[in-house]
Nucleic acid binder design. Structure first.
Ligand SMILES: [Mn+2]
Ligand SMILES: [Mn+2]
Ligand SMILES: [Zn+2]
Ligand SMILES: [Zn+2]
Lengths: 135, 135
DNA sequence: CTTCCGGTTTAGACTGTGTCTAAAAACTGA
DNA sequence: TCAGTTTTTAGACACAGTCTAAACCGGAAG
């Protein structure tokens, strides 16, 4: 029924026990498709009652990404962002503003994937279109 | 003639005045195709005489990448690496070991680039094949 | 109800990467 | 030689992320 019920089911399906902190964090992540860093998320949930510790935000985001609920992206300047859309899709990064947006047009690779190094398996292919503001 | 002369010319063509520190750093970068972080490079030149300060390594790498002599990459875990190969080419990243290698097979995108956000111009398209060690 | 016990959260110290500042040093040209 | 500019430098600083050890919580057992 409610958004909270949807989220509770989502966590249960991923085998993640429900806690109030996880519910709050998931609520913020899944309300809309977004690209949030840990500290941005901390700021958002921090404006709610009661506060959630920084360590919990970091731990929870790592847990969610390990369980496949969000996608961890590193695009620039050493700040990880978490993408609530786990489907593979390319991104557009503005190197001047730091803004990260989705590319909805599905950029595909031409031809087959390269042979991977021995002993490794494909995780995913990241495609990032880097742009700059025109003068 | 010598490698040092090649490098001196390369810097001159890029409009970068030559200094002993820049020569040493460039020498380490361009001797072979490599992906080095600032601190890895600092370690390498630090084993030579006389030491170069950390600030100079950071400043020089930023200068080189602004002038197009190297390519700055951010692939994971908030550590920048500098690629002495400035041609666009895809990379393979092992998320378990942190190893970053070149993909020599030229992965191309199928179809046209997406429409860029208004007021922006394309810088480049990064393609990163992420792999993991098999169990 | 009380006790126990595993998983969870928490504050705060700590690490590593990168930036900034102000002074020293090294060039440059007159 | 001397002034002006660029470059280098040490060290302080900012920030993202990790780690640790203790507090907390909720359910099961007694
Ligand atoms: Mn996305
Ligand atoms: Mn490369
Ligand atoms: Zn909610
Ligand atoms: Zn050399």
């Amino acid at each position: 029924m409610t958004l909270h019920h949807d989220i509770a089911r989502k966590l249960a399906e991923a085998g993640i026990p429900l806690t109030s902190q996880r519910l709050l964090i998931a609520c913020e992540l899944f309300a809309e498709h977004c690209h949030l860093s840990a500290d941005e998320l901390l700021l958002r949930v921090g404006s709610l009652t009661p506060d959630i510790s920084r360590a919990t935000v970091y731990n929870t985001l790592k847990l969610f990404s390990q369980k496949g609920l969000v996608q961890e992206l590193v695009v620039d300047n050493g700040k990880r962002v978490y993408d609530s859309n786990t489907a593979p899709h390319p991104h557009c990064y503005n190197a001047d503003t730091g803004e990260l947006t989705d590319v909805h047009q599905p950029l595909q690779l031409a031809g087959p994937l390269p042979e991977l190094p021995p002993g490794t398996a494909l995780e995913r292919v990241d495609i990032i279109v880097r742009v700059r503001n025109v003068a």
